[in-house]
Amino acid sequence: MFECIVKNWQGEQVGQKTFDWKVAKEETASHVVHRALVRQMANARQGTASTKTRSEVRGGGRKPWRQKGTGRARAGSIRSPLWRGGGVTFGPKPRDYEIKMNRKERRLALRTAFASRIDDLIVVEDFGDQLQRPKTKELVEVITRWGSKPENQTLLILSERTENVYLSARNVEKLKLIGADQLNVYDLLHADKIIVTASALEKIQEVYK
């Protein structure tokens, strides 16, 4: 059972939220979360790096000089990997870096990562109607009132995207805005403080429980 206080727009405590999640055992928790993190980062790789081998480099069809009698080392092509402008030995080729992980294990890792950040979790009331127009300064001020300093890497989780909140948040360097359905292990571990709205927390519980 996890408990956290709920704050309003002014930063005052107005209630309490509890949620009960099944998380990984203490002895296996770090391993499960690590696997999920490695999978996410590997799957984000494009895998488009490519080099040409000696058979793919243009030119080099003619033997540069005769085999014997010149005093130089024998050479069959000017596109040998030993030559400037030649092919690349064992260079990268396009490949798929995807790592598979069972859905149950992925969700267990996500719940475990989320629960491990309970001390840095800040639950707030929905504030979409508080911003009548996009205003970055107001959003930065309220995040400070909630308990996250401007120099902190802050993750803001909303139940659904609000245009005024999005436009206010997009220019803040150390603030990342995601939806409750976009939760991922990397963002949860990377953030110094995690701010989640009450409705987003309910949605997360509903989806990932």
Rank of each mutant, 00 (worst) to 15 (best):
residue 187 D to G: 10
residue 181 D to T: 11
residue 52 K to D: 08
residue 209 K to P: 00
residue 188 L to K: 01
residue 208 Y to D: 01
residue 82 L to P: 00
residue 12 E to L: 14
residue 140 V to A: 15
residue 74 R to F: 14
residue 181 D to I: 04
residue 39 R to T: 07
residue 39 R to I: 05
residue 143 I to Q: 00
residue 179 G to D: 08
residue 172 V to R: 03
residue 132 Q to A: 10
residue 65 W to S: 06
residue 124 V to L: 12
residue 4 C to R: 12
residue 144 T to C: 02
residue 5 I to R: 09
residue 79 R to N: 08
residue 183 L to T: 01
residue 154 T to P: 05
residue 26 E to I: 14
residue 147 G to M: 09
residue 13 Q to P: 02
residue 82 L to Q: 14
residue 32 V to N: 00
residue 136 T to G: 05
residue 196 V to E: 00
residue 112 T to E: 06
residue 155 L to I: 05
residue 188 L to M: 02
residue 119 D to N: 13
residue 43 N to I: 09
residue 178 I to G: 03
residue 101 M to Y: 02
residue 53 T to E: 14
residue 70 T to F: 13
residue 118 I to K: 13
residue 137 K to I: 09
residue 129 D to F: 02
residue 103 R to E: 11
residue 1 M to G: 06
residue 9 W to L: 14
residue 35 R to V: 00
residue 161 R to V: 07
residue 189 L to A: 07
residue 185 V to E: 03
residue 106 R to Y: 13
residue 82 L to G: 00
residue 60 G to M: 09
residue 69 G to I: 12
residue 50 S to D: 11
residue 162 T to A: 10
residue 134 P to C: 06
residue 104 K to R: 13
residue 8 N to T: 07
residue 209 K to H: 06
residue 119 D to F: 09
residue 138 E to Q: 14
residue 157 I to Q: 03
residue 59 G to R: 09
residue 97 Y to E: 09
residue 179 G to R: 12
residue 68 K to A: 13
residue 37 L to E: 03
residue 186 Y to I: 10
residue 155 L to D: 03
residue 142 V to L: 05
residue 201 L to K: 04
residue 137 K to W: 00
residue 94 P to F: 05
residue 20 D to Q: 12
residue 65 W to F: 15
residue 11 G to M: 08
residue 92 P to C: 10
residue 80 S to N: 15
residue 161 R to C: 07
residue 7 K to F: 14
residue 45 R to H: 02
residue 94 P to Q: 06
residue 73 A to K: 13
residue 113 A to C: 12
residue 170 R to G: 07
residue 177 L to R: 02
residue 55 S to Q: 08
residue 173 E to C: 02
residue 52 K to I: 07
residue 57 V to D: 04
residue 27 E to M: 06
residue 190 H to M: 14
residue 201 L to M: 10
residue 139 L to T: 05
residue 118 I to Q: 14
residue 41 M to Q: 15
residue 108 L to G: 06
residue 12 E to N: 12
residue 48 T to C: 03
residue 149 K to N: 07
residue 14 V to R: 07
residue 127 F to A: 08
residue 59 G to S: 08
residue 84 R to Q: 09
residue 47 G to D: 04
residue 20 D to H: 11
residue 194 I to L: 15
